[in-house]
């Protein structure tokens, strides 16, 4: 495992207090049928901003239908890695990659990859809720319309199904024609999840989806992730380790662009292999 001088120094401080680990014991989860194959695979995958290597030679498999959490201190490359998967980094001119990142065995950065099609299959929900300044209905129908669904009845079906899946149907069913910006932050975020689900993606990327929300709204989003688990491959970046332990099956710990440890959530939180991981999850630094 690669380790920087800084990281080593941190890991050599006092041993971890085992007691605090109990709070990270993941709850029992329902069994998932199917899935478990490598949906996304990174091989020696690096992401650069100009010369700066923000994600360093990551090699990992993300299992289909399971929830994978990405944790690590601020600026360690979590978002960069996540945004590499649906090529949102294309928006940043200085950003380029080396190594391989495969989705269903196809190179995401291959010459013949259509990033528009890729994004249809790999949906994303952002840190700050970002509904369009349109009606709730139009927000959800935006994706399906893009992909050729224009029949009003069909759209209505999709909108209802998506809103139900995102557990927000009951709250908005009587005001679908109202502007989405009128919703509360937590509702807006679930609306964004619904909007992503309406395109019927296979993968759901969530970049700190609850960091702008209050605890109640956060709990709703976490419940929602549990609902969606088993139907979608979910990757969630989070600052909150308890959240990671509550919602994920496996966890990736990044430190300064390096994937330090990737294991089942139960193992990573209760029995980390790497001293830096241990220091991080026991709150020795953040």
């Amino acid at each position: 495992m690669l380790m920087t001088a800084d990281a080593r120094e941190i890991s050599q401080r006092a041993p971890a207090q085992k007691a605090t680990r109990d709070m990270y014991i993941p709850p029992a989860r329902k069994k998932i049928s199917g899935g478990g194959t490598a949906h996304i695979s990174a091989k020696e995958f690096s992401v650069y901003y100009d010369e700066f290597e923000a994600v360093k030679k990551v090699t990992a498999d993300i299992l289909s239908k399971y929830v994978t959490a990405i944790i690590g201190p601020s600026g360690c490359g979590k978002s960069t890695f996540l945004r590499a998967i649906n090529r949102m980094n294309d928006l940043i001119p200085s950003c380029h990659t080396t190594g391989a990142l495969l989705f269903d065995g196809n190179d995401i950065y291959g010459k013949f990859t259509d990033e528009v099609l890729l994004r249809k299959k790999v949906g994303m929900v952002f840190q700050k809720p970002n509904p369009f300044p349109k009606s709730i209905f139009d927000n959800i129908a935006y994706g399906p319309r893009l992909h050729g669904v224009n029949d009003k009845k069909k759209l209505m079906e999709i909108v209802e199904r998506s809103l139900r899946k995102a557990a927000i149907w009951d709250e908005v069913c009587d005001r679908l024609d109202k502007n989405a910006l009128g919703l509360s932050g937590g509702q807006q975020q679930r609306l964004c999840v619904a909007r992503t689900l309406a395109v019927e993606p296979e993968v759901l990327l969530l970049d700190e989806p609850t960091s702008a929300l209050d605890p109640k709204a956060t709990a709703k989003i976490e419940d929602l992730i549990q609902e969606l688990r088993g139907s979608y491959t979910i990757m969630i970046v989070t600052h909150n380790m308890q959240q990671a332990s509550r919602v994920s099956d496996s966890t990736m710990f990044f430190y300064e662009g390096v994937l330090v440890e990737h294991a089942s959530t139960a193992q990573l939180f209760t029995n980390p292999k790497d001293p830096i991981t241990e220091d991080y999850i026991t709150g020795r630094f953040s």
Binding site: M88, R119, G123, N130, P133, Y142, G143, R195
Partner: peptide, 13 residues
């Protein structure tokens, strides 16, 4: 806002 663009592109637009 940049977020509108991100939202739209992430939906496969």
């Amino acid at each position: 806002p940049k977020t509108y663009r991100e939202a739209s592109l992430s939906l496969g637009s």
